[in-house]
Amino acid sequence: MTTETYNLVTVSAGVSDPSSTRLLADRATQRAVAILESRGHSVTVSSIDLRELLPELPQALSSQLMGPRFTQAIERLQAADGIIAAAPVYKAAASGLLTSFLQVLDNDLLIGKPVILAATAGTARHALVVDGEMRALFAYLRALPVPTGLFASTEDWTDKALGTRIDRAATELAILVESGFARKVRDDSWARYQHEYGSAGGTELGIDLDSDMMRLATGGSLRDGSHEPFDLRDS
C-alpha cells in the first residue's frame, strides 16, 4: 500500500469551553488519525471552531460575503480528505450554528468527501438528530457520511460503548479516505454535478463551452433542426 498524506478537518459547533461537542469531535478525530497512521499514512489535522466564525456569520447569511475567517474555513474544507462534523442538539435539532454554516457554503464544496457525523445532547431522546437531520443535510451537500453516526448524551460519557462506536466510525472514515473516493469523483466525474460559477470547485476547472446554453449564447437555437418545416436534410 502506498503512503499518503491526508488532511482531516474537524468542524465543531460547540459553544461552551470546554465543550462536550468539541470533545466528541476530537476523540473521533484522534481515533481516525491513529488508524490512518497505523496503516502507514501521515495525517494533518486542523479544526474549525464555528464559535469563532460567529462575528462573520450575519454578513455571510445576509449578503453571501465571506469574511477572512469564513474564507479560511472554506479553504480548509476544500482541501479536506475527511471531515468530522459535530454539533450540540438544541430544541430537538442540530445547533443553528452548524446548519447556518453549512447553508452558506457552496453546494459543491463537499462533494464525495467522507464525513463522521456527531452530536451531543442532554438526553438520549435526541439520538435521531444525527441520522435523521444531519445525515439528510450532508446528503444534500452530496458529502459521504460514514455509516456509523455518533451521538453522546449525558449517560454515554460513562459507557464504554461510546468508545466502540467512535472506533467504528473512525475506521469507516479511514477506509473511505484511503479509497480516494472524493478525489476520483473530482477527477473523473466533476462535470456531472451542478456547479455555480465561481463556486468551490466548479468552474475553476474550466468553463464548458460545449453546452446547449453556450450554443444558444453564440446565436444557436434550442430547437432541433430536423423539425424545421423546410429542412431538406430529411428528404
Partner: peptide, 16 residues
Amino acid sequence: PVYGNGPRMEDFEEMT
C-alpha cells in the same frame, strides 16, 4: 435594501 442589517460598513468597504 439588500445588504442593510448585515455587514458593518467598514467590513463591507474592505470586502467590496
